[in-house]
């Protein structure tokens, strides 16, 4: 279970560019819950994921994961509990290293790295098995440099890397935004499959309202560093994009503004 307690973050404090990114945010996510997150530009959705991942320290509040207060834990230490997939396909993998080397790095997440040969034969078979499930043919290219893969293939690989050591929480930060629509759907399907099959707790930020409605058990909408809509259960199943936009206008008192959402 993840609990965010009054989490506040202000960027560029004391300057003209001061921006309250998270405003006393409170959120509880139960085990096994798949939560989708939408919101306009600068609404705080990515900031929330980065705060959980420890990319920067928060100004106040607490972040509790499975009863452990991780608020002041450094980014690499929290990684033990978290699987992460990023917007930029380049971010989640090491491009100069090959597929199995990347998987081996992810397979040691949260474990002590020793002076042992990094890739052993039994690992190789395990990795091939996992790659096969993607259905992208990557299992035959385990010694290819990841830099040679397409964006979609890299994201699919990053998804496996994020789930190889079962995380307490998987954070997907607009991970299909940089892909073409067709590839984005493939990666989303893979994400959904991995999350459901491993019974993962997931937080997925998306710019696509349709996807936010179609996937997950619960939908959160962010606005100005706060959660303004929290829809789950039957209500979420019946949700439409129009209803969501109306709800947004009603709650926030403004029109939904995100250049990307309008384009979609």
């Amino acid at each position: 279970m993840l609990i965010l307690e009054n989490v506040t973050k202000t960027f560029n404090r004391g300057t003209v560019n001061e921006k309250v990114a998270l405003d006393s945010l409170n959120l509880t996510i139960n085990d096994g819950e798949f939560v989708t997150v939408i919101g306009g530009n600068g609404s705080g959705k990515s900031t929330t994921l980065n705060a959980i991942a420890g990319v920067f320290p928060i100004d106040s509040g607490r972040i509790i994961l499975d009863g452990e207060d991780i608020t002041s834990l450094s980014e690499h230490k929290r990684a033990k509990y978290l699987g992460r997939v990023f917007q930029d396909p380049m971010t989640g993998t090491a491009g100069n290293m090959n597929i199995e080397e990347n998987l081996a790095l992810a397979d040691r997440r949260g474990k002590k790295r020793k002076l042992l040969w990094a890739i052993r034969q039994k690992d190789r078979e395990k990795y091939k098995e996992k790659l096969k499930e993607l259905g992208l043919g990557l299992e035959d290219r385990t010694e290819a440099k990841v830099g040679l893969l397409s964006g979609g293939q890299r994201q699919a690989l990053t998804l496996i890397m994020a789930s190889l050591q079962k995380p307490k929480l998987i954070l997907l930060d607009e991970h299909t935004a940089a892909l073409d629509p067709k590839t984005a759907q493939i990666v989303l399907t893979i994400s959904n499959k991995i999350i459901r099959e491993n019974n993962l707790t997931a937080l997925m930020v998306t710019h696509n309202m349709r996807d936010a409605i179609d996937y997950g058990d619960r939908l959160l909408m962010f606005h100005e560093g706060k959660i303004i809509l929290d829809i789950s259960g039957e209500e979420k199943k019946k949700l439409t994009v129009e209803a969501l936009l109306k709800a947004f206008e009603r709650v926030s008192g403004t029109e939904f503004t995100s250049d990307r959402d309008l384009l979609n």
Binding site: S74, A79, G95, N96, M97, G110, R113, L115, A118
Partner: peptide, 27 residues
């Protein structure tokens, strides 16, 4: 050495520090 788990984490650190940290590596 660079084929070991420790060596790999040094290579990842040089190649992509963001990824390295996300995989629990102290860059």
């Amino acid at each position: 050495f660079f084929g070991t788990e420790v060596g790999h984490s040094i290579r990842a650190t040089g190649n992509n520090p963001n990824m390295a940290r996300a995989q629990g590596i102290n860059t």
